[in-house]
Design a protein around this nucleic acid. Structure first.
Lengths: 237, 237, 237, 237
DNA sequence: GATGAATGAGGCTTCATTCAT
DNA sequence: CATGAATGAAGCCTCATTCAT
């Protein structure tokens, strides 16, 4: 994760093999396989640009090069299309973070920094962040979307941070904080950075510098989390 | 902070002067002057309840006891009405906080806690928070509102927090953190709490407890801000 | 009822007074009062011509000389518009028949004949019959309409016929038949005549003659209902 | 008629010959010949269940185990498919009734009862009734179907009833009624029973009991048809 | 013959905005 | 000033039909 620069999803590095492998199939069938991806990609772009309600399916179809009706061959309705977008663009990133927490070797402080920076690189700094912003902004108008996003993203994000905190505490690296409450407090600045970037950014005289913000946040958070160094050094009587 | 209880705006204690001053005028004329306020109040309530797009001007008019057409005598369109709501409901609260920072007597840690808790009582816990959430959500649909809100609310909030940090550092209470960056990190959790309350709250299995969240946040932030206690005094048993 | 010839509803003889009485009102307000009637009349015509599903609200609006949106100022949706049509065109006829049964002076046989012939003149022979046919034809596609029609028309029609039979039996004119079952059997031929007229009529080589049909039906029904004349004459030992 | 129980068509006992005759052909070719029947059977079921407009060709195809396009290899369009369904499901039943009237041995009253009850068992009580109802309901949308149905079903039904009445009158069992008019009056309650069953049944608080209805109808009709018993014998004590 | 992916016209409903009175 | 009736554009979704393979 550390090595990858921010990429604009979907259409990541996952597709090439399958495309290459069906070289023998008729073009017509190849298109069938690609169509849904094209529609999801088009929807992704427009949802990010305009939000959920303001995105017209007609425009999504046009951008994907299909007719309006074709969308409904693959997605039952607008909300399902949106869910597909979330599944393609956000959920995989959660999986990676999950794996990272599970198999990380270094200190919990380093893991925390890596998770937060990685999240920024994979989501916050990419157009994927537009989806996260959109959900927060329109959640109460579309409860079904809110519920879906909560189950597929929020809840898993929470669980991951909680495991991270647990790990730090168990290893004696972190203070014995209230995990559930701290998890919320730690996620907030990351999400807020997204909201800022996608709401006030255009009219900010002195734009927020994400790098500085993240640096501050991580430093600050670790100050709050880490067992004081003095405790380690001066712990003995 | 201790003196003020959460109040639901607008229509607070701000109106009396104008009402009192036209005591001699005939009743129908008095009403005429109050009309805009009534419409703003109605719009406030409905915007908070339903969001911007889902609020129908017809309902606003009905709730204000006027006809739909009358709205257009006072507000050029829906956006202008929304801007009026923001102006009436959010801006006045900033002034109070400003004054608090200026004249506070206690420790900077106590001031920090009072500011954050007070902000929650005056904004976060009231229906005003719904407007704040709405502004963030709709900011990119209404750049004009975003700009206005940024100038009148965000920027002044930032300045206030910066003064608070400055005060703490100058008095040797706080670590010498990067003020501009830290200010953002500190505001984020407060704003996020509002976003959460107004977006995912309805579908959260385990709803966020604002009191616990705030407590965690303040503790956590002070952990990051305060000069370590060991440095102050109690280094030895 | 006997004196009136078949009329094509709605827009019966009920309106003129009110129209005449508001001569002093501005034309604008007069229109407001008439608009709903005009829309109902237009809807009536088109529903009868094309059925419920096949009637487009746009056409109704055009025929009524209003815009599509105006329909929704008066009727919540297509089904409500249809209900209004039923209320205006069919229900009043039921009321009349109710009153007739209540206050009739002559023999029950004559009442039966008057009711049936009257029903034909007021409904069966008019375009109102198209509504009845439509409901039967499309009932299972629009359960709400079926339920409404059942409550407002069918049930009341049933009750009326039952009272009629009850009257005849109590007065010793009719045999003591099973009222509930007989009521169905008696209504069937009347309704079927409507179905025929509106479904097979166009392609019938020898079209059904309603008058002859009705005559046959009434004769036939009374044969089945009346206490045999011999019983009256030869009753004594 | 006592021997036949209600059967659900099509796919009755009519197919065996064609199936038997191609026993030597490879299975896939046999299927090819059966395909149209399978499609008609599927369409029959769905038309009965949902009506004409509400039946989607996609569902018909799925139920028949073919693709949507295949339907169009056998039926020019939805209407032609519907016509095929009518032909297969209704027409054959008329033949049986014809034969019955021709060879009946008992009294005309018994024949009348048998015809009516038999018709109910072979049509009214089966899903064939759904098709009959559909034809009546959609007749004016599909004049071609109406004409076809009229010629193949209605007219022959009429003729059969007329022969029945003729038989009764000639044998001195029935009064000398107007045959053409009475025939209509007698068919109406039977057809109406079908209409009721398939339109208002779902929303009837007190559903019509077909058995009771038929009993009432036959009793009632015979009351109207039979030469009064007094005239025959028991005029005096 | 068979497939099934793609089409695109069509209909109901909503609501910000206008304007005659 | 105030009214509220009227507008009409816009968007989601369905489904009979076509046609390249």
């Amino acid at each position: 994760m550390a090595s990858s620069t921010p990429t604009d999803p979907p259409q990541g590095a996952a597709d090439p093999p399958s495309v290459a492998s069906d070289g023998a199939k008729p073009r017509w069938e190849r298109r069938k396989q690609e169509r849904p991806q094209e529609m999801i990609a088009a929807a992704f772009t427009l949802f990010v640009e305009r939000g959920f309600a303001a995105t017209r399916l007609e425009d999504v179809a046009a951008r994907a090069g299909v007719s309006k009706g074709t969308l409904y061959l693959y997605f039952a309705n607008k909300q399902e299309l949106f869910k597909a977008v979330v599944r393609e663009s956000i959920v995989p990133v959660i999986d990676e973070a999950d794996a990272m927490v599970e198999h990380y070797q270094g200190s919990s402080a380093a893991l925390f920094a890596d998770i937060m920076m990685g999240w920024w690189q994979r989501i916050g700094a990419t157009s994927r962040a537009g989806i996260a912003k959109l959900v927060m902004a329109e959640a109460d108008n579309f409860p079904e979307i809110a519920a879906f996003y909560h189950d597929e993203v929020i809840k898993r994000g929470h669980a991951m941070i909680e495991r991270l905190l647990q790990r730090g505490i168990e290893r004696g690296e972190f203070r014995s904080v209230d995990i559930a409450a701290t998890r919320n407090v730690l996620m907030a600045p990351m999400l807020m950075l997204i909201m800022w970037k996608h709401s006030f950014a255009p009219c900010l005289a002195e734009p927020i510098d994400p790098a500085a913000y993240l640096q501050s946040f991580v430093d600050f958070a670790l100050h709050g989390l880490l067992v004081p160094a003095v405790a380690k050094a001066d712990g003995a009587p």
